[in-house]
Design a protein around this nucleic acid. Structure first.
Lengths: 193, 193
DNA sequence: TTAGGCATGTAACCCGTTACATGATTTG
DNA sequence: CAAATCATGTAACGGGTTACATGCCTAA
């Protein structure tokens, strides 16, 4: 009911809606599966778990917490929590937040710094290629045992977004590397004269 | 020298490196030309201008501040400021920051909320199409009077990134809308039986 | 003359990361 | 048994948005 929560709370509610999890597990799932478009830190997750518990949107799961495994605290979503999640799903999507430092640097660079930018773009290219490959494994797994009754279809749509982004990154990297190399050769010809 | 400044300071230094500007003009330029991968608010710009001035990296430009136009304060970059900018250009690029709320919602949605998601994706599609068209105008302008001696080439590389992203957004939107529509029809068939 | 854009600035607040602290459990 | 990983949590700090306050200037 008391809407306008921070996004971390919805990440928690969304994940708990599927299965009972501890704070640590939530962090791992976000890192493993959502990291290409989202991230959370422990410093957000743990306090938020307490807050959501005090508000009754989630609860410590006694079923998942047998005496012999004390150190991990699993949480489960409550009915009010599910309602809150559904309401958020329907609310308007906020504009995405994007900050590409590499584009900022490129924008402020000039012909003289082409060699520096070349290195930056190369790094950009390889790091994204690595990330893309990791996600392709996950995608292949999902596609094999697709379950119509869970949200596998939705997850595939999300991964498809990532896939298209990475393709765009790759195409841009190659194009830009070519252009920067041209700049460098042109520069060298200049100084030769 | 005292490195590790916030990003706002480099945006300011980068823009002042091209021409003398006021805080208000800086904000407008960021909104007009960088908004697809960066943004700044007045609450960051004005205090940062003061800080950079007190550090001697920029200075109030007396030349650009004739008595008759008092209300606008133009700043110019200093030599130490240019050095600081060059150092930052060479430093490693920080990983980009991305948060797509629409993907979060899609990830946590299920077959039952396909109609809601359909609306969200439609909104996503049109808003990006609008933005893309605005930037295509700017790009066309730039390409006509390309100046080799300023950083026009670099700006075109940045715009090409945006172009490829928007193409990816468009392709994903269409693909996803089709899939969601399929979900909805399948759902209706289900309830018909 | 009044509305809208130009222009600067501050304060409150929220968000988010990082560093730190602590301890249990597992594995080589 | 030592190192890595699992696990929870807090505090400090810095980043960044929003709201607010103020006033000038210009064009309908």
């Amino acid at each position: 009911m008391s809407s306008k929560k921070n996004k971390t709370s919805y990440v928690i509610l969304g994940l708990l809606n599927e299965e009972n999890l501890s704070g640590y597990e939530i962090k791992r799932i976000v890192d493993d599966r959502l990291s290409f478009f989202w991230n959370e830190s422990f410093g957000q997750i743990y306090p938020e778990l307490k807050r959501l518990t005090s508000e009754g949107l989630i609860a410590v799961s006694s079923a998942d917490r047998p005496v012999y495994s004390k150190q991990s605290i699993k949480y489960e979503i409550t009915e009010p929590g599910r309602l809150e999640l559904q309401e958020w799903l329907k609310s308007p999507v906020e504009k995405e937040l994007i900050r590409f430092e590499i584009l900022l640097k490129l924008y402020f660079s000039n012909a003289n710094s082409s060699d520096t930018m070349l290195e930056h773009v190369k790094e950009f290219q390889t790091s994204h290629l690595r990330q893309q490959q990791l996600f392709q494994q996950f995608e292949a797994q999902l596609k094999q045992n697709i379950d119509v009754h869970s949200n596998h279809r939705q997850i595939l749509m999300v991964l498809s977004f990532g896939q298209k982004m990475w393709e765009a990154y790759a195409a841009w990297s190659e194009e830009t590397l070519r252009l920067l190399e041209q700049n460098i050769t042109a520069q060298e010809d200049d100084t030769d004269e």
